[in-house]
């Protein structure tokens, strides 16, 4: 049985929803860190292909956790979320802005994960544009976790947010400062972040 009807029963769906949300945030962050680390050539360039694979796989795993997060919320007997609320931003009766941030994050993650498979069919500019939405997805996910979530409140929430965002800020800073390799000199793979 999923969910809880009495206060003494273990709210399985609620626990799974929270855990899946936190795991999705961790995986999204890890994927973003990896992409940025590859972009600033912090990691060995000869392993670029393997790292790119991890970057992609982590994003898909994060998206799977987001799906689990949504399914668990649908099954939760307390929240009473419908499929429309989970899929369409702005329909949630409970904290609509915070929930919408989560829904938009899910769609952005789907776009990001799918973009890996259509990379050859779209232009480099479009690929980059889609990939830059990873920052928006991260910011929205963090905002969703801090405002809608019950586990990232107070000092703990700020510490977790800082711990996840600090490497991204640092890597973006490094990305801006570190000059890009000239494409004519080396036959490197195109940018990833």
């Amino acid at each position: 049985m999923i969910g809880a009807t009495t206060s003494t029963a273990v709210p399985v769906a609620w626990l799974v929803a929270r855990a899946a949300g936190l795991t999705a945030l961790a995986l999204l962050s890890a994927s973003l860190w990896l992409g940025l680390a590859m972009s600033v050539r912090l990691l060995p360039p000869r392993r670029q292909k393997s790292l790119m694979g991890w970057h992609q796989t982590l994003m898909w795993c994060g998206l799977s956790m987001v799906a689990l997060h949504g399914i668990a919320l649908l099954l939760d007997p307390v929240m009473h979320f419908s499929i429309a609320v989970v899929l369409v931003p702005g329909l949630a009766p409970w904290r609509p802005l915070a929930v919408s941030a989560g829904v938009v994050t899910a769609w952005l993650m789907l776009a990001l994960a799918s973009s890996f498979h259509v990379r050859r069919r779209i232009t480099q500019r479009r690929w980059r544009l889609i990939h830059y939405s990873g920052f928006a997805a991260f910011a929205l996910a963090l905002g969703h976790g801090l405002t809608a979530g019950t586990d990232l409140r107070g000092t703990t929430g700020l510490l977790v947010a800082g711990g996840l965002a600090a490497p991204i800020v640092w890597l973006v800073y490094a990305r801006i400062l570190v000059p890009r390799a000239q494409p004519a000199r080396r036959q490197a793979t195109p940018g990833t972040a």
Binding site: L15, V16, T57, S64
Partner: peptide
Amino acid sequence: RSVWATLMSVWLLFAVIAVLA
């Protein structure tokens, strides 16, 4: 890689569930 990533994600999920519980 996919198998490892999936296993890692599932274990991470279980660990978070355990901590929350």
